[in-house]
Design a protein around this nucleic acid. Structure first.
Lengths: 190, 190
DNA sequence: CTCATCTCTTACACCTTGTCAAAGTTTTCG
DNA sequence: CGAAAACTTTGACAAGGTGTAAGAGATGAG
């Protein structure tokens, strides 16, 4: 798919430098400006605009990179081995490991230009979870009563909420994950 | 409590006009600017600043008013009558009725200046839920194993997620509430 | 080496937040 | 009623962010 006839290696280098800097800075402060990102990337603000036409475009690219990374990590977590319950917990642990490095990035999905675009972007992650859930439903491990999409949303919401509780220091990480694990299994049980 | 020595009735009128307009406009578009809010309130931008020192201050006031309203509605929902499970569902229904009128306001809590301030602001709501949960734990209706604060967070997260699913049109309101109700009871069961 | 491609510099237009001071206007109190 | 205090308005301004534009300079591909 080398669609571009002549594309300089320099351009790609700048692009990834900007993306790396954006992931880093926005991970610390989601309100970081273009100037700050450009500076951290060792590049001028206008060069950033040469690769990302707007701030929203850059945010989208960052979000996309993160979901890619989470999806990769999930692939490596073995979603299709062993009981569905344990596989699900492995998936969530993998996602947690990736996203805890950039705490502020979780809140980026909040106000996308198009709400539909946001859903499409997060689809790969929801897809992984959905597949494991479906496997559990087929195998009699999970309740096939509620809509699958609701179960997916519930699992994600519960995971986020648990992560927030830990981050806020209201409960210990051990207690929270224990509660999340047993809670999830009870929530999904037939 | 007429603490202010001389406080004009005019001032209060303007203040509430601005707050009403802010609730309305921000409920439609959380990125509405100060000029738009002032215009909708029939007031100048500087008058808004006379009552709320910054945009964040206005946002805090809006959030506070919403939580007050939700708390009032929860009080009227009878949290201390009947089984704790049913009381909890009544509370959530009340909260849903209030907040569905201003869809975008839910996402306002996202980036507060001080994360701690945000928690304090939402405390009244979490408190109501926490009390019902505690009652259920004491009465053997709910599992006293997990931390109470985790259960509160889980209930709120599950409610929000369900609301989002309905808003996105992915599941019908009836299916979603049914799933939420049975899911919550299973999640909290001993 | 040469040219197309990319980057840098400089400059500008626009919007939003927040501040300031002075001139109205309305309410309250004597 | 009348005057003083409180509130609002008008108009202008600075600071900071996003986005655009044109031309000179640097860099890589062939």
């Amino acid at each position: 798919m080398s669609s571009s006839p002549r594309r300089r290696a320099d351009a790609l280098r700048s692009r990834t430098a900007v993306l790396d800097a954006a992931v880093q800075l926005l991970g610390e402060d989601p309100d970081a400006g273009m100037a700050a990102i450009a500076g951290a990337a060792g590049v001028t603000r206008q060069t950033v605009y040469a690769h990302f036409s707007s701030r929203d475009a850059l945010l989208s690219a960052v979000a996309e990179r993160m979901t890619e990374k989470v999806a990769e990590e999930m692939d490596a977590a073995g979603a299709y081995e062993g009981p569905a319950g344990e596989a699900l917990l492995r998936l969530l642990d993998a996602a947690w490991r990736v996203s805890e490095a950039y705490p502020a990035l979780i809140r980026l999905g909040g106000r996308p230009a198009a709400p539909e675009e946001d859903r499409v972007r997060h689809e790969p992650i929801a897809d992984h979870i959905g597949r494991v859930l479906q496997r559990g439903r087929d195998g009699g491990e999970f309740d096939p009563g509620p809509a699958l999409s609701w179960q997916v949303a519930a699992v994600i919401a519960l995971s986020h909420a648990t992560g927030e509780e830990v981050r806020a220091g209201r409960v210990s990480a051990a207690d929270a994950t224990a509660a999340l694990h047993s809670g999830l299994l009870r929530l999904l049980a037939p």
